[in-house]
Every structure is written in C-alpha cells, then in structure tokens.
C-alpha cells in the first residue's frame, strides 16, 4: 500500500499567468489586512492617530498600544500563519500523504509536553520564557521521531516517519494528559496556550523568533524545486539524480524550524498546517513550487483574519486556534466540494 496513490491530484487547465498574478495579488493583500488588523482593538484609534503613533516616538497611549500590543500581535499572526502553512506543504510533499501536517513530526505534542512540564514542575510562567521551552520540546520531539523513523531498513521513508510520528505524538499527548488530570492549577495555566493564541505576545518575543521563521520561509522557497522533485516519489526523484536521504533530512529540518518557532510563538495551532496546503493545491494544482509559494500568503492572511475578524465584529477576544477552524473549516469544505469533480 503506497500512500501516494491515495491522493490523486486535481488537473488544472488555468493559464500560467493567472497563477503568477494570483500570487502577487495574495501577497499584496497582506499589508492591507495588516493595516486593518492594526486598526482593530479595544481602544478606538483613528487612522491618522495610528500613523502619528507609528512615526512619532511620543510615548503616548496610542504609541504604546500600537508598538507593544497590536503590532506584535499582527506580526506574530503573519509569521505563524505563513510558517505553519509552508511547513504543512513541505510535509505533505515529502510524505506524499494528504493527512500529513507538521504535527505529524511530533512538533505540537512535544511543545505542549515541554510547556506543561515547565509549568507543573518548575512553576515557570510568562509567554516569553515558555516560548523557549516550547521550541526545545518541539525540536526534541522531531529529532526523536526522525531517529525512530530512520531505524530499520531503507532509512527515513515517509510511511515509517508518519507512523513513528503518530506513535510519539500519542505517547506525549498521553503524558501531558496524565499531568493535567492530576494538576488543576497547571491545567488552568496552560489551557489558553494549548488552544493556540496570539494575544499578549511581547514585541521582544516576536523579534527574537521572527528571524528564524523568516529564514525558514526563505529556505523553503529556495528549496521548493527539490521538494517538488521529492514529491514525485522516491524512484523518480532518484532517477532525476536527487539524493533522497539528504533532501528528506533538509525538509525535516525546515519543518522543525518553521513549525517549531510558530508553536513557540502561538501555541499548537493545528488547522493551518493541515488545511492551507490543500487550499493552495485546490487553487493552483499539484506543483509544489506553487503550492509552497501560495501557502505562505494564504496561511498568513487566514491567521490574521481569523485573529481579527471576531474582535472586529463583536469585540470578543477568542483564541485564534478556535476562530481559525470556525472561519477556515467551512471555507475549506466549500473548496473541496467545489473542486469535487477533480477529486475522483
């Protein structure tokens, strides 16, 4: 049973220029979205005050709100969305399995376990410190999955990696639940984090994590050619002269960098990494170079919209992990149904 046969990819007959134009459009919409998101919040700030606050260092209330509350939140949203979506696209390309997501490398479960341990055992608090525990946990889990999946014959094949990831994820999630069932205080402290949220992230945290995420994104775009080749299956990519082991390892590394830092910043946001690559594929077809390129702005935009829309409409601040699925779920289902005839 090969996983790749489970996912026949849709055929597309759209003109080539449309894809490039669409990508430019998707990227161009992001600053507009960001401006809109900066404008939404408890304190009503008019646009000209916003611009004044952005340019003048007058230590006014608006200035503080903009630089310490809203801007880090929007930046974190853009980064997290783009990173998770691209990481998901890479995972699906490398494993040739539509069910693959960064979580499959154990990243979310590892981060959650490390954070829960840090709170429960060491009483550590504050998003700034927990961030590093989350990243360490994510990285350690991913390394363990990779080591487990490389054991035996044939090295780290996609199916073995996926099974190893499923095992380790279930294992770590179990341990996390054990702690939370026995420790109500920790549960209370960690539950908002565990849903995935962007609120209250200090600017310093965003600036510390941001460069890593951007480096990962740049790497993914540069490596999208080899990843596309990898997605064609091991025989074909080997025949095309690709060193499969090397590129699988590089891909895994990029996924850890992208998704690990995203989890550190926002907690385990599950939906983006799994669904945005599918959205991109439904829009542009099976070429992973385009899927990766589209995933970044789509993911960034989706996260910012999900994080802002409900606050804009009703003033209620719901964690982005929840609103993402509420906004993105129906959109995704509609996309699948519309493109349904391609998915035989």
């Amino acid at each position: 049973m090969t996983a790749s046969d489970a996912a026949p990819l849709p055929q597309h007959r759209r003109p080539r220029w449309l894809r490039g134009f669409g990508l430019i459009l998707a990227v161009a919409v992001l600053p507009v979205l960001a401006l809109w998101a900066l404008n939404v919040g408890n304190a009503a700030i008019s646009l000209d005050r916003l611009i004044a606050a952005a340019t003048g260092f007058d230590a006014s209330r608006e200035h503080v709100i903009l630089w310490e509350v809203r801007l880090p939140r929007v930046l974190a949203g853009l980064l997290v969305g783009a990173q998770l979506a691209v990481a998901g696209a890479i995972m699906q390309a490398v494993t040739a399995n539509p069910l693959a997501s960064p979580g499959l490398l154990g990243i979310n479960a590892g981060a959650a376990f490390a954070v829960v341990l840090a709170i429960a055992l060491a009483g550590i608090d504050g998003a700034g410190t927990l961030m590093w525990f989350a990243f360490l946990g994510a990285g350690a889990a991913a390394v363990a999955v990779y080591a487990l999946g490389s054991a035996g014959q044939g090295g780290a094949t996609p199916l073995k990696l996926a099974l190893a990831g499923a095992v380790l994820t279930a294992f770590l999630a179990s341990l996390t639940t054990v702690i939370l069932l026995r420790d109500q205080t920790t549960l209370d402290n960690v539950r908002l984090w565990s849903v995935g949220s962007l609120s209250g992230r200090p600017m310093a945290a965003v600036l510390a994590i941001g460069p890593w995420g951007l480096a990962g994104l740049a790497g993914a775009v540069l490596a999208s050619g080899p990843i596309m080749t990898l997605s064609l299956g091991s025989d074909l990519s080997r025949a095309l002269g690709q060193s499969i082991g090397l590129w699988r390892a590089i891909s895994a590394l990029m996924v850890v960098l992208l998704a690990g830092t995203a989890v550190a910043l926002a907690g385990p946001v599950g939906f983006v990494g799994l669904v945005v690559p599918h959205m991109a594929r439904l829009l542009v077809g099976p070429d992973y170079r385009w899927v990766i390129a589209y995933s970044a702005p789509l993911g960034a935009g989706l996260v910012v919209i999900a994080d802002t829309a409900l606050r804009w409409l009703s003033g209620v601040d719901i964690p982005v992990g929840v609103t993402l699925a509420l906004v993105g779920g129906p959109v995704f289902i509609a996309l699948v149904r519309r493109q349904g005839w391609n998915l035989r």
């Binding site: 489970a6 996912a7 026949p8 539509p98 069910l99 599950g270 939906f271 799994l274 669904v275 599918h278 699925a325 509420l326 993105g328 779920g329 129906p330 995704f332 289902i333 699948v336 149904r337 349904g340 998915l343 035989r344």
Partner: peptide, 14 residues
C-alpha cells in the same frame, strides 16, 4: 476516498 478524507479534516477541525 480523497473527498472523504478532506471533508473529514474540515469537519474534525470544526
């Protein structure tokens, strides 16, 4: 198969 999987992902997300 593929549509069931994808819709399953969407509904599970909700």
């Amino acid at each position: 198969s593929i549509r069931l999987i994808l819709i399953g992902i969407g509904v599970s997300a909700l």
